[in-house]
Design a protein around this nucleic acid. Structure first.
Lengths: 222, 222
DNA sequence: AGATTTCTCTAGCGGTCGATACAGAAAAAA
DNA sequence: TTTTTTCTGTATCGACCGCTAGAGAAATCT
């Protein structure tokens, strides 16, 4: 947005030169191709921001884990802020989509929430990657208010999506007409946030699953 | 710990010179008395760390809100780290004691947890001060692992205290013998952490109270 | 009064922050 | 080949970080 670097957001020249010449609309540029894979570098950035958060991850940390120099980072991703924005978006599609999937695929609001909580228990304790949720923890202590707000908006939007699903469940008759959709959605959000925090604090997958099961006891008989 | 500044942790010369000469054990020292009130300066530091967290609150921020120069801060509180430690301790006694009080004063584990959740709803949305809980949010994105760990330990100790209270409730017969004390305690902790997060994200006191009431539905019939 | 002790203010230390200028290297285009 | 374009590595930039030396101010002690 800020600089004249217009190519920051594009997918890039598809890694190696082995890619066929007729893959995209705009062929790869003329000059020297970049020497690293943008996708895997982005993945490394996701893991770094996920583990340490926006401000605690320095550009120097990023260049180290991504294996590239600072100028390459700025040329490929823009400044730290826009890299983080892209990281959050990619994180959403790669790791944070289980909630939306449950809401879309499950037949009832209740089973959707139940699956969401159960999958959160697994996602948040998956070995080999940071525990908990990036959206919940990556911008908690932040001197840049806009970054803090962007993740806050995302969290509140998630709760609103749950509430919306519960409302249509009530309309469909799967839940009592006097069920409090807002409270149920907020409760689900609170459980997920609490589970994410506890995953960070060392809770095991089984403990979080017990939590998920326990939490479903508040739902009205269907 | 590091320097020879041994007087950092003491209460200080009781503010003004109007204090009677026979108040404490060790009279006030010989030299120039400090020109600010240590207690109120500490309170300002609590609010700053509470709102922005450990790393996002710079020493420059601290000297501004505390109304003193950096050398005065270091002389009175030690370095940033030890000031934060004292802030956490003071926060615990001034703002974070409602949980322990509920556990100690209520007649049953269930009413203790219920009161704890209800009071958390009020505490975390109290106007005129930062929302949510300092222990939960002040060291989330932290490049100093020891600081992060110290708050993590505090959180886990709180859950352990709840579990212990539930266990004695089971022993006293107020809860079924097969009640899962660990899961109930973890659930309470997760609810409190979720409530704190939502308070930060803009939830109102009434919404958190509804959450607290909802959460109690998981408890076994007594 | 001096002498002594302690605090406060200014100024600045070395280090790291995010971000970039510049020159050389490596590719495509001519 | 030469030219053009783009990327990469070095070497910073100014700003801020946590922290402190040193000198003067303000109290007590003798």
């Amino acid at each position: 947005m800020v600089s004249a670097q217009a190519s920051s957001q594009q997918t890039g020249p598809e890694a190696g030169p082995e890619t066929g010449p007729e893959t995209g609309a705009k062929q790869r540029g003329r000059g020297r191709p970049r020497s690293f894979d943008r996708e895997t570098a982005l993945e490394k950035a996701i893991l770094a921001f996920w583990e340490h958060g926006y401000e605690a991850t320095s550009v120097s940390d990023l260049t180290k884990v991504m294996g590239i120099g600072a100028p390459s980072l700025y040329a490929a991703f823009g400044d730290k802020r826009s890299l983080f924005d892209e990281v959050v978006r990619e994180y959403g599609t790669r790791y944070g989509s289980f909630g939306d999937r449950a809401l879309a695929e499950e037949p009832t609001a209740r089973t959707a929430v139940e699956r969401m909580l159960r999958e959160a228990a697994a996602e948040y304790t998956e070995p080999g990657r940071p525990h908990g949720c990036l959206v919940i923890h990556a911008a908690t202590n932040c001197t840049t208010p806009e970054v803090e707000e962007s993740l806050r908006d995302r969290r509140n939007a998630n709760i609103a999506a749950i509430e919306s699903r519960i409302r249509s469940g009530i309309a469909a008759g799967e839940l009592p007409a006097d069920a409090d959709a807002a409270a149920l959605a907020r409760h689900t959000g609170a459980m997920i946030q609490g589970m994410s925090q506890q995953a960070r604090d060392g809770a095991a997958k089984e403990e979080l699953e017990a939590l998920a099961e326990l939490a479903m006891a508040i739902w009205p008989r269907s």
